[in-house]
């Protein structure tokens, strides 16, 4: 359904902007405190199409504090560097919306 996809696209954009602002404030405070300990973790994704995986990786990098290093399209694994140790689901809150938008 086209209308559902448009709804998910708008919701994805709103969530992305909200997450960017939240992470921006968080990272700005961390630069003042000096509370920085980068870790690398592997995150499994449910997205199957390469375009949606690319959009997910791009959104992760766009959010300050998280950075995608590598993407294995067939095994559906993303290598992500985060500024401190974080829960895996908290790194990709927009995965559900991308799934509704493109899959």
């Amino acid at each position: 359904m086209l209308i559902t996809r448009i709804y998910y696209a708008i919701a994805y954009f709103v969530v992305l902007i909200f997450e960017i602002i939240k992470a921006e404030i968080d990272v700005a405070f961390r630069t003042i405190n000096g509370d920085v300990k980068p870790v690398i973790m592997e995150i499994e994704t449910v997205l199957a199409r390469p375009i949606s995986q690319t959009i997910l990786a791009n959104s992760i990098t766009l959010t300050p504090g998280t950075l995608s290093i590598d993407l294995d399209s067939e095994k559906r694994i993303l290598k992500v560097a985060t500024i401190v140790k974080r829960d895996k689901k908290a790194v990709i809150p927009f995965e559900h919306y991308i799934k509704g938008m493109l899959e």
Partner: peptide, 27 residues
């Protein structure tokens, strides 16, 4: 700018920390 200058080079995986902090400039 202050954050990048403050980070010492001995920190583990310091390059990723610098890229994270540079993400603030993008926004």
């Amino acid at each position: 700018a202050i954050g990048i200058l403050r980070l010492s080079d001995d920190l583990d995986r310091v390059l990723y920390a610098r890229i994270h902090i540079l993400g603030v400039v993008d926004v």
